[in-house]
């Protein structure tokens, strides 16, 4: 890849994360939600992979290594914000604050369960897609990893 694409890729990363954050936060008010935000983020990261190649991209952004874990954490966050109300006897996906109650706001961000649910989805999708990109960056692996098999057998 040329230096130009590398530069563009590097330059695009931060703005696309901003866009994603915007999509995530204003999801309840306007078009977009956690899912769309996550796809935007993962596309930005895919661009890094394209520009720098898998190895360099991952060196520069070591945090990517935790993508699978992020995905699962996201799933659990979403799941728990969906089902936490059950503990107090409510229906799943009961919304806090409840109908008609006042919503605490931080700027334009309204604090409620739906937001944490959306955030969980964001983490899940972003993590999963990044993991997918990572694995697609190399051809499939066919040889059995023997030492790990032996380890697992123990």
């Amino acid at each position: 890849m040329t230096i130009l694409t590398e530069a563009v890729a590097r330059l695009l990363l931060a703005p696309s994360l901003m866009v994603a954050a915007a999509i995530l936060i204003k999801g309840y008010v306007d078009v977009g939600d956690g899912f769309a935000a996550a796809v935007v983020v993962s596309l930005a990261i895919a661009l890094q992979y394209l520009a720098f190649g898998a190895r360099r991209a991952e060196q520069e952004l070591p945090v990517l290594r935790f993508a699978p874990q992020t995905a699962i954490v996201g799933l659990l966050v979403a799941l728990s914000s969906g089902f936490f109300a059950v503990i107090s006897g409510g229906a799943p996906f009961t919304h806090e604050p409840s109908v008609g109650a006042r919503v605490v706001r931080i700027g334009r961000l309204e604090l409620m369960t739906a937001v944490s649910f959306d955030f969980g989805i964001f983490l899940l999708i972003a993590g999963a897609l990044v993991a997918l990109i990572h694995h697609l960056a190399e051809p499939p692996e066919l040889e059995p990893d023997l030492e790990e098999d032996a380890e697992a057998a123990r």
Binding site: G27, Y28, L79, G82, H95, V103, M112, A114, I125, A128
Partner: peptide, 26 residues
């Protein structure tokens, strides 16, 4: 507490669908 009906459906009314759907992706 929402304005975009589609998003509210996804995150609230039919949040269960969304939950399953993202699990499918996972």
């Amino acid at each position: 507490h929402g304005r975009d009906v589609v998003t509210v459906i996804l995150a609230d009314f039919r949040g269960l669908d969304t939950m399953v759907e993202v699990t499918v992706i996972g």
